[in-house]
Design a protein around this nucleic acid. Structure first.
Lengths: 213, 213
DNA sequence: TAGATTGTTAATCGATTAACAATC
DNA sequence: TAGATTGTTAATCGATTAACAATC
């Protein structure tokens, strides 16, 4: 039944551009704008108009020829499509520097992500709080995840613990893992993984700088 | 002369996979392996063999039919191609939680990135040290960047300061910006930007979880 | 109306995957 | 040798871009 997943599927590059449009729309709205055309977005963001039009179409928005899109309408189409209205709860494992940064970053709430608490196997880190989020011993992870029916796990542990922590998440019933470690984790087919690979990103930047990409 | 940039250009997706192969090779090597085939890498990483072969070819490595690649040879081809032998120096602006996490993350050294120091306009953060890296007032950024001929700037400031900090970097002669803020920054054509957009990544994960991507 | 803009279909481009000859 | 593997050319697939009719 995998085909069911793909009805109206948005290409990942399009999906990643949608929040950029949203940011710009909020700015224009704050300046009193009521309507926006792809031409305007185009010159502001440096993307071509037809691409923007195609991207926006995924939200179901309908524009007016000659006028463009109603900004409020477009914003609510975007918020709705991106799921920014309802919040998703998540647990984080690994309260080191990166974990702490993620716990402290309030911007996630704006995109519907609520990190409820963190877990760490270092006793010196547990029973602290970061940004009002408790840090608990990993022993409590499975139980709490099941009880609270948490679906999303954020992985911010050292490389060596990445796979074992991922396994712990999967055993506890986590369905989606946001992997901030540098290593690729192995997961069953039905588990979704999003891998933020900083090292790879730096190599991309570095190659671009050398003019080789 | 832009075409000169594209000789032997590696596709970005290929470039991002290369470090994964390297990680796996290091693991196999540590277990005593001497040769590796794409078939083996394939089953370990869940990618298809022909893609791996094509990716590895960018490094200039030549394998042996029936045998595969000499692991040491392949590792040094990768290290060389990815520039992991020589280090690149960078400055970071924004010593909040995320900045601190980046300063503390020792894994960057392994990929040739040396963050020398950080800058922040909050006096309570400056004159501290994180992971032996000084945090200085932003006023000193331009001068030091020029004097030390730093090419890479890491942007970890709040969204409101993203553009102005980027402008500061560009004025100081920075050629490549690694943008960890949530906003798209505008830069001249000759400046390279790599945007780590966590909010967009979360939305991708979220859509995947809902089976809509 | 004329012209700017939307929405959609067709063409292009680039990355992935398939096919297969060469090799050890 | 036979069979596994590399390296390369061709086919496929998906995203971007171009072309253009419809609309206000």
């Amino acid at each position: 039944m995998a085909f069911l997943n793909n009805i109206n599927a948005v290409p990942e590059p399009s999906l990643r551009r949608l929040p950029l449009y949203r940011d710009y729309l909020l700015k224009v709205k704050s300046e009193g704008g009521l309507f926006i055309s792809c031409t305007q977005i185009s010159s502001a963001l440096g993307l071509i108009a037809v691409q923007i039009r195609k991207d926006l179409a995924f939200t179901g928005i309908v524009g007016k020829p000659k006028v463009g899109y109603d900004i409020d309408e477009l914003l609510s189409a975007l918020d709705n499509y991106l799921g920014l209205n309802n919040t998703t709860e998540a647990f984080l494992i690994g309260a080191g520097n990166l974990g702490a940064a993620l716990l402290s970053y309030d911007g996630f709430e704006a995109c519907g992500l609520h990190i409820i608490a963190a877990f760490d196997n270092d006793p010196s880190k547990t029973s602290r709080e970061i940004n009002k989020k408790k840090i608990m011993p990993v022993e409590k992870f499975q139980n709490l995840t099941k009880r609270m029916k948490i679906n999303i796990g954020i992985l911010a542990v050292p490389a060596e613990e990445a796979q074992s922590s991922a396994d712990l998440m999967i055993n506890a019933g986590i369905k989606a893992i946001w992997n901030f470690t540098s290593v690729k984790i192995s997961v069953p087919d039905d588990i979704v993984v999003q891998h933020e690979n900083f090292a790879a990103s730096f190599l991309v930047l570095s190659k671009k700088l050398k003019g080789l990409l």
